[in-house]
Design a binder for these strands. Structure first.
Lengths: 111, 111
DNA sequence: TGACTATATAACTACATAGTAATATAGTGC
DNA sequence: GCACTATATTACTATGTAGTTATATAGTCA
């Protein structure tokens, strides 16, 4: 990573930005067990159809999902499953942090 | 990841958000070879001291860096080196994508 | 063709945040 | 105490974007 120029850093930051949104994570999460169309993703996410459509086009733009229209539906699927590795790593981080905070809290409650 | 509730998703999204900023990536990058104080990070990032300080407090808040003040200086260091794994994964993704785009471009230029 | 359904887009509002300039805080040494 | 340096914070502006509503586009079937 030490040789990254500003341009590449901007790309990487954009990639992270695509993941930095609960609704988009929820949709990626839903796509783990295979492709879904916009209607299904709208249902899963609990957002408006317009909003889902916008999120999906952003995810597609950054290469996180693939788009395929069949009939009147458009199906989206994960472009590269390695995105889940990222999420796992972050989940571990977050969980560890929460545990750590819980421990500290316990420490204070005892003392 | 399939069992994540909305609360946890928000945490994960926040973690990604902390990484979704070129300046912060640059600072994390600079911390790869050990701790640095705010002055050094200001120099590396090319931002104002106030701005660097804000970014650092955000990174500390999300548990990405550790803070230790010694004398009049405050030294920051990486809290968990696994953050670099994340960056590597994303870099690979980004690079692959750029290569793919370059190939497509070449295809069009030839044809 | 026209009615119907699925998806995308445009215009807009509200909110978050990156960056700046000025100021506050805190440690060091006289 | 005072001057000096390093870092943090405050108030502010400008920009980006999540979400909404309304509308446009495109495919299907009668």
């Amino acid at each position: 990573m030490s040789k990254l120029n500003d341009n590449t850093l901007a790309y990487v930051a954009d990639y992270f930005k695509a993941l930095a949104e609960p609704t988009r994570l929820k949709m990626l999460n839903a796509l783990q067990d295979g492709e879904k169309n916009v209607g299904q993703l709208t249902e899963v996410s609990g957002c408006s159809q317009a909003n889902v459509s916008k999120h999906l086009s952003l995810l597609a733009q950054y290469g996180l999902v693939k788009r395929e229209s069949r009939g009147t539906s458009v199906f989206y699927s994960i472009a590269d499953p390695s995105v889940y590795k990222l999420c796992e790593l972050v989940c571990d981080q977050v969980v560890n942090r929460l545990i750590q905070e819980a421990d500290v809290k316990k420490l204070f409650m005892v003392g």
